[in-house]
Design a protein around this nucleic acid. Structure first.
Length: 426
RNA sequence: GGAGAGGUGGCUGAAUGGUAAAGCACUUCCCUGCUAAGGAAGCAUGGGGUUCAUCUCCUCAUUGCAGGUUCGAGUCCUGUCCUCUCCGCCA
């Protein structure tokens, strides 16, 4: 959430930064509502003060033994009643205005960072670096991962569709074990890199989704449990970041680094016809997520190391990839800056997103009221939150099935993964 | 799912409807003088106003949350969420 005070004091800056994302963000209305709300609040609190005064006076007089029926008490009560009438008009107005402001504010995206490249859409994203050309497979007859997967009997779609729906998969035998090996491998690596593993709830309430900014704007993207205020988490970012919602963290305890393995659930509304085959875009997929809560002045550096920590997995698996910096037009709602890691998928001759690493600044912290406090200092500040996949498990498996495909139709298991998988080939 | 109890500062914990005790912890200071004890003050968060701005200052709100009654609600009423105990069910 944007800071209303910042909008108030720097409307032009806000306008200009939002415009970098594209059209359609008008802060005029909110500035006006804010002015009205503050005027009302000033009026209301003055009346409130008077009312408090009367209450106190009556209280003191009653304590002193005054007759409740006396003229003095009755006239004070009458005065109190009049204030109450005035308040009953002002209060709903103020409340309504503030609710409107809040609702609008929740629908404004974060301001892009000064360094985020300006662009209209994904075509204007910027490639930052590329890694692993020497590992590009030279086999030109590489089968797409879903074909080789079904051929080897380790990916099964038909039965998963029967059990659930399209966009679900069943992993069999070596497929299931490979998934498990990848999970353990990634968690171990990220733990060694300094992230504390957590295993949070993956059903999350509306407040949590609002804090990390999946709500209110993206409600149709998540699965909702009908009879409870619970949703299936679309990413571990939600439960892990929200572990600290409404907390004031001692500054000494920052930075906080967490990694978490969770299944993730997405409705993929509006992606009909996209990636309908294979395991690139499923309603349920596994992911190891990295989450950081840091001091504001460190968040840019923390963002860079977060990306490096995600890259380290791809490097260890010797999977070719590139790092893309998203331009303002493609930037996620809550992010001020974002790098995507894209892994090479030889069957389609394309790089595909396998990790998205974002710096949210104080955007999520403000929504979730996650603050920190310096010892011996007054006041609190919002932390900065960051997260990134480290990595998406299914897409990593797809990349392995393709990049490690041998001429004889077997899959070589990446060396780093062999201790976890227990075999050298599939 | 059934029955009961309860949600008050960092923690413990009071408050016949009269405007949130006290203790512990913490911070600063004083006294004392040696692994200690005593005294004083301070000690929450958020909003608004004031200010070029910060602090101060003024003010409002916050006893889980949302309403209601009242001049006045921690206290009474209604709804709701959460926690705990017992029972039931259950991996």
């Amino acid at each position: 959430m944007l800071d209303i005070k910042y909008i108030r004091d720097n409307p032009d800056t806000v306008r200009e930064r939002l415009a970098r994302r594209g059209e359609g963000y008008d802060i005029g209305a909110i500035v006006k509502l804010d002015r009205q709300a503050r005027d009302l609040e000033t009026q209301r609190s003055q009346l409130q003060a008077k009312s408090n005064d009367i209450g106190k006076t009556i209280g003191q007089k009653m304590k002193g033994g005054a007759d409740p029926q006396s003229e003095e008490i009755r006239s004070l009560k009458e005065e109190g009643n009049q204030i109450k009438v005035q308040l009953s008009e002002l209060e709903p107005q103020e409340k309504d205005l503030k609710a409107q402001i809040e609702a609008q504010l929740l629908r404004f995206p974060n301001l892009p960072s000064e360094t985020t490249p300006v662009g209209k859409n994904e075509d204007e994203n910027v490639e930052v670096r590329r890694w692993g050309d020497e590992f590009l497979p030279n086999n030109t007859n590489i089968l797409p991962h879903w074909e080789i997967g079904e051929k080897l009997g380790i990916l099964n779609f038909d039965r998963a569709v029967k059990v659930a729906q399209s966009r679900f998969v069943n992993l069999v035998g070596a497929g299931a074990k490979l998934e498990r090996a990848l999970i353990n491998f990634m968690l171990d690596r990220q733990t060694e890199a300094g992230y504390t593993e957590v295993m949070p709830p993956i059903l999350v309430n509306s407040n949590s989704l609002q804090a990390t900014s999946q709500l209110p704007k993206f409600a149709e993207e998540s699965f909702k449990c009908d009879s409870d205020d619970l949703w299936l988490a679309p990413t571990a970012e939600v439960p892990v970041t929200n572990l600290y919602r409404d907390e004031i963290i001692a500054a000494d305890n920052l930075p906080i680094y967490h990694c978490a393995f969770t299944p993730c659930f997405r409705r993929e509304a509006g992606s009909y016809g996209k990636d309908t085959r294979g395991i690139i875009r499923l309603h349920q997929f596994n992911k190891v997520e990295l989450v950081k809560l840091v001091r504001p002045e460190t968040s840019e550096d923390e963002h860079e190391t977060l990306v490096r920590d995600a890259e380290a997995i791809l490097q260890a698996l010797k999977l070719p990839y590139r790092v893309i910096e998203l331009c303002t037009g493609d930037l996620g709602f809550g992010a001020r800056k974002c790098y995507d890691l894209e892994v090479w998928l030889p069957s389609s001759g394309k790089y595909r997103e396998i990790s998205s690493c974002s710096n949210f600044g104080d955007f999520q912290a403000r929504r979730g009221n996650i603050r920190f406090k310096e010892a011996k200092q007054k006041g609190t500040q919002f932390v900065h939150t960051l997260n990134g996949s480290g990595l998406a498990i299914g897409r990593t498996m797809a990349a392995i099935l393709e990049n490690y495909q041998q001429d004889n139709g077997t899959i070589e298991v990446p060396e780093a993964l062999q201790p976890y998988f227990g075999k050298e080939t599939i």
